[in-house]
Design a binder for these strands. Structure first.
Lengths: 143, 143
DNA sequence: TGAAAGGTAACTTTTATTGTTACATAAGAT
DNA sequence: ATCTTATGTAACAATAAAAGTTACCTTTCA
């Protein structure tokens, strides 16, 4: 299964955007993450749908943040990207009538649900403005 | 990303094995999980390498548990299947020199590590014999 | 009206899992 | 002895999801 790197990539872009006081084009963003503009538009469109960014066409167009990074959490962006499964571990479903299969799947699902809940809770505690600040303080601390 | 359903499938097989007092063939196991014997051998071979099962060739051959289910945890089996990533979320690595990318990835990695630690801890607390017992008691409780 | 931007559909590439075929080897049954 | 029943394994095909690419559209402003 190929990894979904959209969250990492789009967070990278958003933090850059906050430091650039003008519309940023898909072309520029594509260079930030070494891909092409269509891939960028595809992901950014989801954030626009959730009102975290706006886009304008034509000359001097591009993308702008719709709110300060301090008002956006990792969870917000995660959700904006859609409700896809976060685990590579899947449950079998060949014989859903088998009580053993049901017991196995219930046990696995309970654990995965708990881990997911923890992860989303942590994501909800981190705002995007902390990503820059965290980095600077750890840089100063480590030399 | 396609899900890795080996853990769920092989747990299903192991619990069945405990209830069958003779060597179980790959053919029989393949029917349990609706696949073919080669797929079964591929996964079971990993469990044999980790000494959870044994296999014998020829007439009346097949697979046997090497220890009681009570002595095997979900974590044991998870580890026996190899150290593959459990998350579909990947980190970008286009520009590892960019401090913003590093800050984003560190934040994501910290959260994922924490969620993974919780998941593995829970897996370590569940022995395979509980899968049958859990199911029966929940069945009785729910009617 | 031409250049610069986003919008989007359709298709290809990539990557990991799963499935399949084929054949070798081992061990007990006849 | 040799046939049958098993596992062992290599090589290849099918499947599925993300990412990449191409092509063409519309919008906006100089």
């Amino acid at each position: 299964m190929r990894k979904d790197s959209r969250l990492s990539r789009v967070l990278h872009i958003l933090v850059h955007m906050a430091a650039i006081a003008r519309p940023v084009t898909s072309e520029e963003m594509a260079e930030m993450i070494s891909t092409n503009p269509v891939v960028v538009r595809r992901t950014m469109a989801l954030l626009r749908d959730a009102n975290y960014v706006t886009s304008t066409k034509g000359h001097h167009g591009g993308w702008l943040l719709a709110k300060p990074l301090a008002n956006i959490t990792l969870l917000d962006i995660h959700h904006a990207l859609g409700e896809s499964s976060i685990f590579t571990i899947g449950l079998s479903d060949e014989h859903s009538h088998c009580v053993i299969e049901q017991a196995v799947n219930t046990a696995l699902k309970d654990v995965m649900d708990e881990a997911k809940a923890l992860m989303l809770q942590r994501f909800g505690q981190i705002t995007l403005d902390q990503l820059g600040a965290d980095r600077i303080s750890s840089y100063l601390n480590k030399g």
